[in-house]
Structures are given as structure tokens and as C-alpha cells.
Design a protein around this nucleic acid. Sequence first.
DNA 1: TCCTTGTTTCGACGTCTGTCGATACAGCGA
DNA 2: TCGCTGTATCGACAGACGTCGAAACAAGGA
Lengths: 128, 128
Amino acid sequence: MSNLELKVLDQDAEAVACCSPMVREPLDEEAAADLAKMFKALADPVRLRLLSLIASHEGGEACVCDLTGPFDVSQPTISHHLKVLREAGLVGSERRGTWVYYWVLPAALAKLSSLLQAPAGASAGAAR
Amino acid sequence: MSNLELKVLDQDAEAVACCSPMVREPLDEEAAADLAKMFKALADPVRLRLLSLIASHEGGEACVCDLTGPFDVSQPTISHHLKVLREAGLVGSERRGTWVYYWVLPAALAKLSSLLQAPAGASAGAAR
DNA sequence: TCCTTGTTTCGACGTCTGTCGATACAGCGA
DNA sequence: TCGCTGTATCGACAGACGTCGAAACAAGGA
């Protein structure tokens, strides 16, 4: 198979990738537990859609009342999912008068994004 | 947060990505369900460490025998987690003689990474 | 003040998930 | 061929998770 070549390419690219902690060195136990909490918050279709709804909403923030409509689940369930996202540090929230607004915390997403950065141009059908 | 800016700049070259960041437009139901499966595979400390062990292993691939040592859990449990990673499309595997080798599929990681990319300035009000 | 609307919390329920030991399967070497 | 080592599957179990309806809390208006 081409696995031999594969690994050589991977190794090559790894030298170039400067910001990919997970690929560069094994995660220690504590870091893994910490990161797993964030990924767990993303590991639900409703929460993923909530996050993208918030992030792509005009002004970068959304009222809860904007978020309940698009889903089939009950409003308390939405509230629960928002709480999970908030406690994972992925979103912030604030009450302003009658409504509660949520916004994405870009630093948290960036942290996960950089962690997952894989050597570009490596195997597995990656064009390039 | 200079860290964030740095990150975004670095990923400039990675516009290769297949998906636009979820901050640009809301995920549809189907895409969210699909992505949630991958994030679910990452949502466990043992699997995160397994993935980073594999990715950072010499040659970009690792034998199962290299992966059972660092963990407190049993060998069947490791095997189970590897299966989850494989079925999520995050790693590939192959038996070569006595041993089974696993390697990371960079395209999958890149897909998730690009999805989580946050626009540098967007909702920077997060300083709030 | 009371009522209405928006949001969160509570308690309960069924399902999914991580873990184990026991066991089956796959190659290699004697 | 047999036995040994490496890996995967099976069956079971406790705990975590997503969901709901009911109820509590918060803010504004009549």
C-alpha cells in the first residue's frame, strides 16, 4: 500500500506546521480532559446549529427568542443547550432588559481550530 | 489577543478548506448532524490523547501496542475508542502482519479546523 | 399592584456511552 | 500442527446525556 509514502509525507509536513499542538506532541492528561469538555459541547447537532446561528447572526449576537424558532425541540431544551455552550466557554451571554443575548467567543473556537490543524497537503484525498 | 490574530493569519494558506466557517452562515440540519458525529468522537479525553499520540508518533502512524501503555484503561477499551475514531473518519488503520497500525486522516481534521475558524475582527466585542 | 412575556431551573424519563472481563479471531514461530 | 502474542468483539453494567412538562424567576406595561 501507499502507507509508507503516506507517513513520509506526514513527517515532512509536520516540520512545517508550527501551530498544531495535537500533531506535534501528545496531549497530557489534563489538557485532554479540558479540551474534551469543549468538544463535548460541540458534539450535538442542536448545539452546533445554535452556535452557527449565533455566530452568523447580524451583529454577531442573538437573542434567545431568535434561536428557538428554527428547532423542533422545546424552549427549555434550547436553554439547556445554551447553558452547555456557555459553561464550555464557547459563548458569552448577557441580559439586556427583557431579552438575553448570546455571542460567540472567538478565542475559544480559534483554540480548537488551531489544535486540529493538520499538516496541509498530506494524504487522504487532500487536494493540493 | 495577538494569539488569535496570529492563528488566523497562519491559516491563510489553508483556504483550501471545503467548508466555510460556521460563523458565516447557519449550518443546515444535515451538515450539523454529520459534523456532530466527528466532534463526538473528539469529545473524550482518552480519544483525544489517542489521536495526538498517533499523530505525533514517529512516522505519523502508531501500532496499537504503542497506544495501550500510556493509559489506565483496558486494552478492549482502547480498541473500542480506536474504532470510534475510525468510524468517525478521523483515522485510518491497516493490519501489517501481527500488528495493526493507525494513522490520522489530515483532511478530516482540516475540515473541522476550518469550520471553527473565527473571523479576526468579528464579534470582537467579546472583550465584553 | 397584577398580568403578560421571555428565560431559566427542576424533576423525571428513556437512551446513549465508557468501561470491564471473557472470549474470539489473526499471524507468527517452534 | 500447536501454542503464543496482538487485536477485536461480545455482553453487561453504571453513569452521563438529551428531552420533556411544570414551575420559578425577571422585567416591563396596564
